[in-house]
Computed example of a mutant assay.
Amino acid sequence: MTFIKLESVSLEYPLYNTESTSIKHHLLRMATGGRIAINSRKNTVVRALTNINLDIRSGDRIGIVGHNGAGKSTLLRCITGIYQPTSGTIKRQGSIAPLIEIGAGMEPELSGYDNIKRLLRLQNITDNESQSLTQSIAEFSELQDFLSLPIRTYSSGMLMRLMFSVSTVSTPDILVMDEFFSVGDDSFRNRAESKLTEHINNSSILIFASHNMELLKKFCNSFVRLECGTIDISDL
């Protein structure tokens, strides 16, 4: 059975040189969406997430909303295992694919082909399986000879093509998605939206962070609203 369960999950970032002024603290709050606090070790921290409890099951399509800096991306990174919470537990059952940021998990000095192998390995896809999937990824991305070059030579659009193509080459049980994949040229965007819709429909769980309420209402059946790293859940 596919599920994700977060129990009392909190995440803190330490702040150094805290002799800074109250104005700097105010700017940090604006930039991070978290709360300035003192932890149990008397260190100054930003509380990016505070006591998050979520029980997500098969069939759930969760739309995550909130202002910039409210904690949406931090929550997605915790759910996918990119970040480890400071406290609390996260339990997952089922394969998971993150579509959350350009270049996540990539090595700039490696070629496109080597990064394909790396990203597939992070999805727990074996080397034998990745060999059969690489051709599909190359064809969908249309990067052709560029895949032999280090990805530090790629534009942001090329990186987006590569990561999207890798992340959608097989359908996961759990799809975790940020809205940055709405960017790109018209030709690729149309193919990507078609593939992504198929991907969403075939996944057991969708977790989608976006400012686009039209898309959220199209794909999701409930909201998680974040405010300064805390949540409010309401049905659509």
Results as ranks from 00 to 15, higher is better:
S222F: 06
E107Y: 15
L28H: 02
K5C: 07
V183F: 10
D232P: 00
Y13D: 03
K217V: 04
A192N: 05
E109L: 15
C220V: 08
I231R: 12
G59H: 02
I102N: 11
R35F: 01
T50R: 02
F223M: 14
Q93K: 11
N39E: 04
F219I: 08
S234Q: 14
Y13E: 07
T2H: 00
L216D: 00
E19A: 06
F146P: 05
S210F: 12
G157K: 10
S141P: 02
H199M: 15
N212M: 12
S58T: 11
G63C: 08
S203E: 14
G71P: 03
V183P: 06
H26Q: 09
G59C: 00
E198W: 05
K117Q: 15
T50C: 04
N124I: 04
M1A: 14
T74S: 08
L27S: 02
H67Q: 10
G94W: 10
S222I: 11
I82P: 05
F208E: 09
E7Y: 03
L206E: 13
I38L: 11
D186K: 07
R152Y: 15
I82W: 09
C220H: 10
E101K: 09
E198M: 07
S165V: 08
I151C: 01
F3T: 08
E142C: 02
S204K: 14
L99E: 11
N190R: 04
Y154E: 00
E107K: 13
R57C: 06
I174W: 01
V183C: 03
L226N: 10
V65T: 04
T86F: 07
R29K: 08
S111M: 13
G88M: 05
D235H: 13
I36Q: 01
N190E: 10
D235E: 15
D185I: 07
H67P: 01
G34S: 05
R121W: 10
N202W: 07
F181C: 07
T80W: 06
Y16P: 00
I90H: 03
S222R: 14
R29I: 03
E101H: 07
M1F: 12
L226H: 09
S8W: 00
T18I: 12
L159T: 05
G112L: 11
D60H: 06
L147V: 08
D185W: 05
V45R: 04
L159G: 12
G69L: 06
F3M: 12
D60L: 05
L226P: 06
T134V: 12
